[in-house]
């Protein structure tokens, strides 16, 4: 019988070890073993981070939307989908920030600016803001079922708006920028291609590893809420008998039985508890 620490088990250990190995290999190949690009020079080494992170970000948001849909569909409604939505949205935001950061740095390197109103960049930034709002909504507390329902609705809408955002940003940027900043997609081949594929594997492993852990944190938090709830019901029930026993004890012997079952006088129960939630 092993005593697990934290949210790990066999699955996450395998995933975690795989992530470490593939990330290390990607770094080794990406930073040292592959040659610099003819057009981009050393900057091409960012291609081993940025596209994979962007994909992970979109996968995270897509997964969040799918899980939310599954939650909204009455036949498949289960707290599992809600937890998966929460976990994948949060990990998705992390990768979204990474995408924006690496994209910005890459842009600075190759175009000389930290930010450009490129269609895809703008879309990603908008998505990031939208899902930050989604996460803020999830943190507002309240009844878990209500929160799950409202946040599922919000997540589905956010993703449903992606096409609109896509057209808006692409029409807009083609209007604004005469000079196209579209990179002539550098033809990558050989070791560069394999390293890039490796980076997708690495990021995919890191992504799933994080989602699994985050999902389990959500399970634990739910569990604490539910157990707290069972305790709260017991306490609430105890209020009734406590009110009877709280009354000035006539004698040292607190008799159970009739005295407890009898209705407490209004004066007696008025003491002790006041100003509780009565709404």
């Amino acid at each position: 019988m092993t005593v697990h620490k934290g949210t790990a088990n066999q699955l996450t250990r395998v995933l975690g070890a795989g992530s470490l190995v593939t990330v290390a290999l990607t770094a080794l190949f990406g930073l040292w073993l592959t040659p610099p690009d003819a057009v981009q020079g050393q900057l091409v080494r960012l291609i081993y981070v940025h596209p994979a992170a962007a994909t992970a970000c979109y996968v995270g948001f897509g997964l969040c939307a799918l899980a939310s849909l599954a939650y909204l569909w009455p036949r498949t409604r289960s707290r599992r989908w809600d937890r998966l939505a929460a976990a994948s949205a949060e990990v998705g935001v992390v990768f979204c920030v990474i995408t924006l950061a690496t994209g910005s740095i890459w842009g600075r390197g190759s175009w000389g600016v930290w930010w450009t109103w490129d269609a895809r960049l703008t879309l990603t930034a908008l998505l990031c803001a939208v899902f930050l709002g989604y996460l803020a909504l999830r943190r507002t507390g309240g009844n878990p079922e209500s929160r799950a329902l409202t946040s599922a609705i919000v997540a589905v809408v956010c993703v449903a708006l992606v096409p609109i955002d896509h057209y808006a940003t692409s029409w807009w940027t083609t209007l604004h920028q005469g000079d196209t900043l579209m990179r002539a997609n550098p033809l990558i081949h050989g070791s560069q291609l394999y390293t890039m594929l490796l980076s997708f594997v690495a990021v995919g492993l890191v992504f799933s590893w994080l989602v699994v852990h985050r999902y389990r944190v959500e399970v634990l938090e739910d569990r604490f809420e539910e157990e707290g709830f069972a305790v709260a019901i017991a306490e609430r029930r105890a209020e009734a008998s406590a009110a009877v026993q709280d009354r000035p004890a006539e004698s040292a012997v607190v008799g159970p039985g009739p005295a407890v079952a009898a209705s407490s006088s209004s004066a007696g129960s008025e003491m002790g508890r006041d100003g509780e939630v009565s709404e």
């Binding site: 507390g141 309240g142 009844n143 809420e225 707290g228 709830f229 709260a232 019901i233 609430r236 029930r237 209020e239 009110a243 209004s266 129960s269 008025e270 508890r273 006041d274 100003g275 509780e276 939630v277 009565s278 709404e279």
Partner: peptide, 29 residues
């Protein structure tokens, strides 16, 4: 529940038509 607080913790109650029922109890009961 109100949030996570059980405002009703196992109520048994029957009310007949035409009844006039008075609920008594302390604040927060």
């Amino acid at each position: 529940l109100a949030g996570r607080f059980p405002v009703l913790a196992g109520v048994d109650l029957d009310v007949a038509r035409g009844d006039v029922m008075l609920l008594r109890g302390a604040n927060g009961a």
